[in-house]
């Protein structure tokens, strides 16, 4: 029986891979359909609103009324807030081709909260390229990543940033000023020792890496260097891969 075993393992692995791939594809297809449907709903509403006469009849109650009727027929998921998001989504992405299949509806809800076009494009590219989770994307928008990167650039640089997303080519570009460490949840007035701050950073390493920026990998804390029997320690050491 023994020689059969590795072959059997291979069979099992191949079937497993097929199942997982199929599941992932199905999820992706569902997501694309969902985003597309929401986009269409937004389009229907905007086009309806643009027919001036009818609009006056319903006024600003349109969304409330729609929400009520849709919920009755199609269940939850059509709250006023959701319908408002679909409408905003369409207004931000009027060409369907500009919507990426790589992002989920939840990503897009977060993205449309960015009112400025240049900024939104930046976050969108960044989320696609780095496969950002919705949570990480939200955090980067809250922490004004785009603005902080943009401030060290001229107009051309900002446009480039918007077009390409978060792409780093020069070490000077990865250094931010300031670093936003709100996730350490230290009260502002609190004076903290270096050691304690370092510990907090280690406790929240994942978020710290996100804040440091692209390509950072943690190597060590208190990295020891010995020179002529004298010892030095580097607080934190990282490798950066571009």
């Amino acid at each position: 029986m023994k020689p059969v075993k590795p072959k059997y393992e291979k069979l099992l692995a191949a079937i497993g891979l097929t199942i997982e791939t199929a599941r992932q594809n199905a999820l992706r297809a569902i997501n694309t359909e969902l985003v597309k449907a929401n986009w269409e709903i937004g389009r229907h509403i905007v086009e309806f609103e643009q027919q001036g006469k009818e609009r006056a009849e319903y006024g600003s109650d349109l969304l409330t009324r729609l929400s009520k009727d849709l919920r009755q027929r199609y269940g939850n998921g059509f709250g006023r807030r959701n319908i408002l998001d679909m409408r905003r989504f369409y207004l931000a992405y009027q060409k369907w081709q500009t919507v990426s299949a790589k992002l989920s509806w939840s990503h897009y809800i977060v993205l449309i909260s960015v009112s400025d076009d240049t900024g939104r494009k930046f976050y969108e590219k960044y989320a696609i390229n780095d496969k950002l989770s919705v949570r990480d994307l939200e955090r980067q928008i809250d922490a004004s990543l785009f603005e902080r990167l943009a401030l060290s650039k001229d107009k051309k640089g900002v446009l480039q940033l918007s077009k390409k997303g978060y792409i780093v080519s020069d070490p000077a570009e990865i250094v931010k000023d300031p670093y936003v460490l709100d996730f350490l949840k230290i009260p502002q007035s609190h004076r903290m020792s270096e050691k304690a701050l370092e510990q907090k950073i280690i406790d929240n390493l994942q978020q710290f890496l996100l804040e440091l920026g692209k390509g950072f990998t943690f190597v060590a804390r208190q990295y020891r260097i010995s020179l002529r029997n004298k010892h030095y320690s580097i607080d934190l050491v990282f490798i950066i891969a571009f």
Binding site: D116, A150, L151, D177, P178, V180, L181, D182
Partner: peptide, 24 residues
């Protein structure tokens, strides 16, 4: 060698947006 400030709170988004707008 770079010296950067760190801050323990989120930046004032409106303020930053104004500055970026000025660049644009």
């Amino acid at each position: 060698i770079f010296v950067s400030k760190y801050q323990l709170y989120l930046p004032d988004k409106k303020q930053l947006q104004k500055k970026v707008k000025a660049i644009m």
